[in-house]
């Protein structure tokens, strides 16, 4: 009975997130435009000047990286929407209803994950049209698992940040000093084997590296690390972020 109630509460919060997304057509358009630009313009441009001897054509190499990057952005931003809830009073409305705080948290997280995974699927479809062949082992389920782990980690990160930082300016700072370096140092855009040693260390301590590596493994069968290690590190990272996000959200 209690569990049933909790599930319907989570669904109510989730439903609101999805309705909001559906109403904000600009966000939907951005979701399509961003990967179109990255894959269509950047991807194809580099494809004609870069030639990777070991890793096939560059567009196929770049696609999993862009997929992870776009999802990280989408997930983080959706976590940040709690800032708006607080500013526009809806958080208070949720807090006076009899539902548990955990239900609000889980509903919001699932809303963000849905949005990020949806974004991922859009990119996959786009990539297929551009001639990228997904040939990795366990392609589809593997990619979905990786997408889920990456997005829940960054939705939680967004929630944690949103609980601490209450302004849009602060949010910009987080994006510039946390998310962007993580993406650039994850091997999303280039193979890390050619990097100088000090950068390689930065790449290795970056949890997102393993997300990109796993995605590349499942998508095109190319990877630098062990896939089991990738997934384990990613899983630990996600759980840590969920705990941190949950902690800050409850406290705020």
């Amino acid at each position: 009975m209690e569990d049933e109630k909790m599930i319907s509460d989570i669904y109510a919060i989730y439903l609101r997130e999805i309705l909001r997304l559906w109403r904000q057509k600009v966000r939907l358009v951005t979701m399509i435009m961003m990967p179109l630009l990255w894959l269509g313009v950047i991807g194809n441009a580099f494809n004609s000047v870069m030639n990777l001897p070991t890793q096939g054509d560059f567009l196929s190499f770049l696609t999993p990286g862009i997929l992870v990057m776009t999802m990280v952005f989408t997930a983080t931003i959706s976590g940040i929407t709690t800032v708006f809830d607080r500013e526009f009073g809806f958080l208070k409305e949720m807090l006076v209803t009899p539902i548990k705080r955990e239900s609000i948290l889980i509903g919001k997280m699932l809303g963000g994950v849905t949005q990020a995974v949806l974004q991922g699927i859009l990119i996959l479809i786009l990539a297929i049209f551009m001639g990228v062949k997904f040939s990795g082992a366990m392609s589809i389920p593997g990619m979905f698992l990786t997408m889920f782990l990456v997005s829940i980690a960054f939705v939680s990160l967004g929630l944690a940040v949103a609980s601490k930082i209450t302004s849009m300016e602060g949010f910009q700072m987080v994006m510039n000093f946390m998310i962007q370096p993580m993406i650039f140092l994850s091997g999303a855009f280039y193979p890390t084997t050619f990097l100088p040693d000090w950068l390689k260390i930065m790449v290795k301590i970056n949890p997102l590296t393993y997300g990109v590596d796993a995605m590349r493994y499942f998508a095109i069968g190319v990877n630098e690390f062990n896939i089991i290690a990738d997934l384990l590190i990613l899983l630990i990272f996600s759980i840590t972020m969920i705990l941190i996000g949950g902690h800050f959200f409850r406290k705020s």
Partner: peptide, 15 residues
Amino acid sequence: SIGIVFQDPSLDDRL
């Protein structure tokens, strides 16, 4: 047992 109308607006204005 309660309902409340806050001093500040608390509707979701996208819905």
